[in-house]
Design a binder for these strands. Sequence first.
DNA 1: CGAATTATATAGTGATCAGTACGGAACACA
DNA 2: TGTGTTCCGTACTGATCACTATATAATTCG
Lengths: 195, 195
Amino acid sequence: MAVGRPRAFDREEALDKALEVFWRQGYEATSIAELTKAMGINPPSLYAAFGNKEALFRQALDRYVEKGSVRIREAMAQPTARAAVEKLLRDGADRLTDPTCPHSCMLVTGALACSEEAEEVRDEVASRRAMLETALRERFERARAEGDLSDNTDPASLARYVATIAHGMSVQVAGGATRKDLLDIVEVALKAFPA
Amino acid sequence: MAVGRPRAFDREEALDKALEVFWRQGYEATSIAELTKAMGINPPSLYAAFGNKEALFRQALDRYVEKGSVRIREAMAQPTARAAVEKLLRDGADRLTDPTCPHSCMLVTGALACSEEAEEVRDEVASRRAMLETALRERFERARAEGDLSDNTDPASLARYVATIAHGMSVQVAGGATRKDLLDIVEVALKAFPA
DNA sequence: CGAATTATATAGTGATCAGTACGGAACACA
DNA sequence: TGTGTTCCGTACTGATCACTATATAATTCG
């Protein structure tokens, strides 16, 4: 057993609460006061357990990406490149309109534009976004090696395209797009995919 | 001539400076201190000339949209729906990577996620974003009436798709995508367009 | 039971936030 | 030259920002 007074709150539960606030409002628009209220703890507990606002955000981001990368892996595991993209985008439409979560992708709304002081956070979020593109490119490279995609398809361009659709869907849903709207978009987007 | 001491700064020049800061950092991440510094004026002059931070942002947004809607109209004036989309997206790629401007679309980065106090601003930006989709839908409806697009294409879905690409490109460029990257995306995206 | 350790709540820190009170300066007009 | 009007810069407002000093409560170990 650890010595000293035991922590009176569940660290993971509190992190999830913080995640939700950051997810909904973004990094800079979220104050410590809002965080502590949502987490049900006082500032000293927050700082003792998570470091500071930036460190807390990064830990929340880790948690967010953790769940997201599971979905990406599941999608990429589909037998064909097209099926992988189809699953990724359709599941994305579901997730972005999940009534129990903020209607957005935290990798898009978390810190897209920001003041100079938050540039490192913004870059961190951007590099997490880039992971999707990388996963797609690798999947497409594999597909080309397997003959699933023809040799004259460029995996990098195609990956950028699919990532653009995914991130664009995040913007659409922030503007009030419904699940059906997103699924319509996916339908059209898939037409660009090499047969 | 107006009575009283004349204004010592150019209102439009100052507004352009404010626009640039809002464009780069977004509404909430921008402070009055940063604005007054960029505009070369003191807070009382800002408040006398523009009202308050929110009113200034809305006026900057108007100015931004003004320029943008010219480009949209030019694109929509192309002889075919496909040519319209092609021009819109290719010009968009140029604009998003213009070295003399922030590398982003203000309608995406201006206020995507925000705190509760800024919700009205966020909604205003979203409604400006929706204008692109509307312009596209109307252009596609015309194209269908002219026989340029077949009757079984849904103008609304196609418009949502193109808007999603455009907004997705904004996110890509925020993550460091180059002009060539964006043009590659446009190339792929156009394949989804009905022949 | 102390002593050591760690978490807690209260109540602050200086800095910055958006916005303004105020007195003087620059103009048009009488 | 005087008067009214508008803008200017300085210096400030209370509120909120991220963060913390301090004292106390709760635990383990000797």
